[in-house]
Simulated scan of single mutants.
Amino acid sequence: MTALTADRNTPQSMGPRRVGLVAAATTIFAGAMLMRNATGFLVEGQTATGLIGVGRAQEYVDNAAGANGDIRVEFEPGIFRYENSAAADEITEADLGKVCFAVDDQTVAKTSATNTRSPAGVVDHVDELGVWVRFDEALTRAAAA
């Protein structure tokens, strides 16, 4: 491409909603923590390596019998409350601003459990009902590096 020589109508992505391709053999429930795998497809939050949190699923989708990318799911980055782990993996006020890790599609933990969990997002705040996690894929990748 060459440099502009006139005005350009540059498209803008409005709002936080995104749509992504779902991994093979995956069922995602609305409200679930959503993660991207190493090949770029979306899966539900889970204890596994090679994933990165991207946001909250906005809808139920069933690709249990499908191949990678057969269906799409709408999701939203942002700050959402999920369940807190217990005991040594419980997230507290001391963990604000730190990366938290996915246990399943609705639970986060303080640690990677000896490198068996992937980063879900960054702890925004904690209350008596759970952990508020900031889902921003780029921020989480940078914070976890």
Rank of each mutant, 00 (worst) to 15 (best):
M1F: 10
M1E: 10
M1H: 11
T5V: 07
A6M: 12
N9C: 06
N9Q: 08
T10D: 06
T10N: 06
P11H: 06
Q12T: 15
G15P: 07
G15F: 08
P16L: 15
P16N: 15
R18L: 09
R18D: 01
R18A: 02
V19I: 12
G20I: 07
G20N: 07
G20E: 08
L21N: 10
V22F: 05
A23Q: 09
A25Q: 14
T26I: 03
T26P: 11
T26L: 02
T27N: 13
T27K: 14
F29I: 03
A30N: 11
A32P: 09
A32E: 02
M33N: 06
M33P: 03
R36T: 02
A38K: 10
A38W: 13
G40P: 14
V43T: 06
G45V: 02
G45H: 06
G45S: 01
T47H: 06
T47K: 03
L51S: 05
I52R: 00
G53S: 04
G55C: 03
G55F: 06
R56T: 04
Q58L: 15
E59H: 07
E59K: 04
E59R: 04
Y60P: 14
Y60K: 12
Y60L: 13
Y60S: 15
V61K: 10
A64H: 12
A65K: 13
A65E: 12
A65S: 14
A67R: 13
G69M: 06
G69R: 07
D70K: 02
D70Y: 00
D70C: 01
D70S: 09
I71R: 10
R72G: 09
R72W: 11
E74A: 14
P77Y: 00
P77I: 03
I79V: 11
I79M: 09
I79Y: 03
F80G: 00
F80Y: 05
R81S: 03
R81K: 11
Y82F: 14
Y82W: 07
N84C: 01
S85D: 09
S85R: 10
A86D: 13
A86I: 11
A86G: 13
A87E: 11
A87S: 12
A87T: 13
E90T: 07
E90A: 15
E90H: 02
I91H: 04
T92S: 11
T92R: 10
A94L: 10
L96M: 11
L96Y: 11
K98E: 10
F101R: 01
F101E: 03
F101I: 00
A102E: 00
V103L: 15
D105V: 00
D105W: 02
T107Q: 01
V108S: 01
A109R: 05
K110A: 08
T111F: 06
T111P: 02
S112R: 05
T114L: 14
T114S: 15
N115P: 04
T116H: 05
T116A: 05
S118C: 07
A120C: 04
A120N: 01
A120K: 00
G121T: 03
G121A: 09
V122F: 01
D124V: 08
D124W: 08
D124N: 12
H125F: 12
D127M: 01
D127I: 05
G130M: 01
V131W: 04
R134K: 15
R134P: 10
E137T: 04
T140S: 03
A142E: 11
A144L: 07
A145D: 13
A145Q: 12
A145R: 13
